[in-house]
């Protein structure tokens, strides 16, 4: 990447439009994978502890295994969602590459690293939980906006179409997967 990773990361947070456009054009796949993994590791370490997994009914597994598991899940989810977005954008007349969107979406997830300071704020007595909850909502919105930007800049489409793709393509995918699962279980049982 021309500007260097630290500068690009700062750019995603400070000047997202031009930086994400540049990422979609340059397609730094290696850095995109590293960003996804780092965000996964940081957010998992920040929010998850083995006790929480136990409460959620998941097996008691070691922290490194949990981190690895979530990193793989995040990576696979991003790959699949990018494919869904790519398909939807192509149908709606967008012209862009899968690799460009993958890189743009990976960097768009960067606000997720703020899970760590938010988890630290959550430790504060009385107001910690509220502040942390509000902050989590904020970074969720922030990541959503960056994700829409990544679609818009990669396919050079209108913001409205980018929003449509971002919000509805996963819903369609979920409905299809759910229907298939439902039919399978329905037939088996």
């Amino acid at each position: 990447m021309g500007k260097g990773i630290i500068e690009t990361l700062g750019g995603v947070l400070a000047r997202p439009i031009s930086t994400i456009r540049s990422i979609c054009e340059q397609r730094p796949i290696g850095w995109a994978i590293i960003v996804v993994l780092v965000v996964s590791v940081v957010s998992t370490v920040a929010w998850i502890d083995p006790g929480m997994l136990e409460e959620l009914g998941l097996p008691d597994i070691s922290m490194p295994a949990i981190v690895a598991l979530f990193s793989i899940i995040n990576m696979v989810t991003l790959l699949v969602l990018t494919a869904v977005y790519h398909l939807a954008a192509s149908v709606l007349g967008g012209r862009g590459t899968y690799g460009g969107l993958f890189c743009g979406s990976a960097f768009a997830g960067l606000p997720g690293i703020f899970a760590a300071p938010l988890a630290a704020i959550g430790l504060l007595p009385i107001v910690g939980g509220l502040l942390s909850g509000l902050g989590t909502f904020g970074i969720g919105l922030w990541a959503l906006v960056l994700g829409i930007l990544a679609i818009r800049e990669n396919y050079l489409i209108s913001t409205g179409r980018a929003i449509l793709i971002y919000l509805f393509a996963p819903v369609v995918l979920f409905v299809v997967v759910f229907l298939v699962m439902f039919l399978m279980f329905f037939l088996v049982n």
């Binding site: 500007k3 260097g4 630290i6 690009t8 760590a116 300071p117």
Partner: peptide, 12 residues
Amino acid sequence: NKIIGIIVAVLI
């Protein structure tokens, strides 16, 4: 951008 990147990294 670089300054922001470094500050964020340290904060994390």
